[in-house]
Nucleic acid binder design. Structure first.
Lengths: 330, 330
DNA sequence: TATATATATGAAAACGATTTCATAAATACG
DNA sequence: CGTATTTATGAAATCGTTTTCATATATATA
């Protein structure tokens, strides 16, 4: 591959002038411009990004850290990130952690050595102190999951309100025995969604029953398993609110296996509105998260931090929506 | 951020020695080693990747070009790519093209400027000539979709055989009126799968009926729409083979809307075995592609090309499997 | 003991661009 | 017409590493 100096030599100018032509900068005479572009074409020259990056001490990349790219929820967000990154001249690097802190930290370390100009964290395994520390060195935005009380912006929805709305919808349908399939982990969304569930129950004068509360790991299998247990209760619930679509689908298949009709015998509501939710039979009532937009806004915020050195605001809350489908209403 | 020179100064050694310590190279005395690591810790120094990359003229990255990361088929492959890339010290950059050639070519151009050390192409929109040209400059591997007759390795399954097996399965169940929902595009897999369909029919002495053949775009909607039309035929098919799971699911929902029972009234077979296929009700009979492994093998091949300058072989065919589920067998 | 080799280190070059600074030529201004 | 400004260009510095080459010291070998 030819370098800027090869081009300069062939065009009979200096490397500086070639650089000016490449970067459509300033004050290049038309003849020189022509000579240089001709040389560039003849040599099929492409500016070397490694050289450029070093000189500018800018990587022109951003890093996306997430648990699992094959989770449709995250991959849709990544699409939003990628589009906005592109519009702003950034490339996207991917770090799939499999929720392994060590793997995440390996990347974080490299980040400090300018692996990327900034990062978007989804469901990070790091603790608040480390995140706060990181935010001093590198522009970072939290997307969906986030830690509170640290100087790091986040983009998410109002999880408590969303869960509240979902459960209120079930109550509005006449349900009183409403179970909850959540998750026990460090993520704020898990506790907020439970909080919303409890608030809706409380408001309707329904007692919170711990027997109706169980915890999975967002997987199909865990939804399946927990539903089986709920169905064994002497007072079987008539509705279930799950904090993820995948668990909801697992729960539905579980109930179907027991020859129960959805929603007649038991109504199920999910959370996320992944692509598959509307295809599923019965199609899934769920909280729609604006995944693509979450990605876009997170990336927008990150560009802002990178280029202006500071965040415009710490809290971005995007709108969610209750999407009512066959799994709760015939 | 401190540089290698800061560390050198603090440790009272030269930058070269610090570099030796960082790279666990050779011949550093224990005392020096200690001094340097101490200075590194005190300054919280991380080697700058931009400097390192330039000096080595190696980006230590690979680029993955694909139509759509939120397609569960591709995202699972990316996971395989990422894991193997990591094991070999490469970072993964993502290019989501939305099947837009211009977007793809923008990245390809940068590739020539060392944006990455190599690339994996999935369902590229480029023509054979351009791909052949590209393969002269950059190590590139085609994954799943590929062009034949160019000096660029590919990793895929035997699409013709897979389709043949799927259709043979339907024939084995007694079906004779078997429709085909394919795709009309430049991709080899589309024509190969159709070829397999025709071969299975021919072998069973079933006439190929063009009325039973229609083409979608891999989407849920297209599967849905085409099934509607197939059901309007005076001689309605009793089985349908779809070249993607998503279209198969669309087709099933379409038939369900017409009050047909799956598989009693009409059996449906998909292709890919995406994550959702087993969750769907009825669970989907399909050809299982080893998506994760396809990614792993593609990345393995790419590492080989990058580091040894040549491909070991041009053709990698991985095993597929017919997975029989509820959508064809009660 | 004299020489050959191994070990440990530093100075300087190199990777390939961009950018600063200097300067010459061209143009504008009074 | 003389000076000030703008335009166009090149030389050299710079970004932060790694690596080559040179060299001094320590160790091994004969």
């Amino acid at each position: 591959m030819s370098t800027i100096n090869d081009v300069a030599a062939r065009a009979g100018v200096s490397a500086a002038t070639v650089s000016r032509v490449i970067n459509v900068n300033s004050n290049v005479s038309p003849e020189t411009f022509k000579k240089v572009t001709k040389a560039i074409d003849e040599l099929n020259y492409r500016p070397n990004i490694l050289g450029r990056n070093l000189r500018k001490t800018k990587s022109e990349r951003i890093l996306v850290i997430l648990p699992n790219i094959s989770n449709p929820f995250y991959s849709e967000i990544v699409k939003g990130i990628e589009d906005v990154a592109n519009q702003n001249g950034y490339y996207v690097m991917l770090c799939n952690t499999d929720s392994d802190l060590a793997r995440e930290e390996k990347y974080i370390k490299m980040l400090k050595g300018q692996l990327a100009d900034g990062a978007i964290l989804m469901a990070s395994e790091m603790n608040s102190d480390d995140l706060a520390e990181l935010s001093k060195d590198i522009p970072v935005v939290q997307c969906c999951e986030y830690k509170e009380g640290i100087p790091m912006p986040h983009v998410s929805i109002d999880n408590e309100l969303a869960a509240y709305k979902a459960v209120k919808h079930l109550i509005g349908l006449g349900h009183e025995k409403i179970a909850f399939i959540g998750a026990k982990n460090q993520f704020l969304s898990s506790s907020l969604r439970k909080k919303g569930y409890i608030r809706a129950l409380g408001e309707a004068g329904i007692n919170f029953d711990p027997d109706y509360c169980d915890y999975g790991d967002y997987s199909y299998k865990s939804g399946f398993r927990i539903m089986k247990q709920l169905l064994k209760l002497s007072q079987r619930p008539t509705a279930v609110f799950c904090i993820s679509d995948i668990m909801a689908i697992g729960a539905i298949r579980s109930a179907m296996e027991e020859k129960l009709q959805i929603p007649e015998d038991i109504a199920v509501c999910g959370f996320d509105n992944i692509y598959f939710s509307k295809m599923f039979k019965p199609s899934l009532t769920t909280i729609s998260q604006p995944m693509y937009d979450l990605g876009c806004v997170a990336m927008d915020a990150l560009v802002n931090m990178i280029e202006n050195g500071k965040a415009e605001t710490m809290h971005y809350f995007l709108e969610h929506e209750l999407v009512i489908r066959e799994s709760t209403v015939k």
